[in-house]
Amino acid sequence: MITLLYGTRPPHRAAAAPEGRNLWLSAHDFAAATGWELKPEGFCQADRCVRIPPGRGIVDGQRVNLSAFADLLEHPVVRDEAHGVWALADAAPARRAALQSLEAPDFTLPDLDGRPHALSEYRGKKVFLVSWASW
């Protein structure tokens, strides 16, 4: 089993085994882990699709090679072999573009009692979003 940590999404566990630097996932696991769908147009998320260049070993039928996908989208990858955990972060240009759009990204987090809340629940108000910590 491999645990996949993709950007700020929750962890996803998948029955997969690395082959060298490659990690082949079923299209189902790939979508559950990353939020990207494998479609005839390419990798699609919301209203955006990325074409899959042929001959780079990115896709094989209904399987996706996560390492090659990461290369395509310029995601940094860090992996811990001993515990079977792979972490992929957003690419820097994508993060910069998101920040430059000035659209406040939504997120869902628990309160102290574990109840989930989304930032978007407060749309229509002016939101003062502020960080703190116990440390």
Partner: peptide, 20 residues
């Protein structure tokens, strides 16, 4: 990570339409 905060307290002001 989403907002580029690097310390506490850091804050972001977001208007009624969800614009920073």
């Amino acid at each position: 990570e989403l907002y580029g905060m690097v310390n506490v307290p850091n804050a972001v002001w977001i208007d009624e339409e969800g614009r920073v």
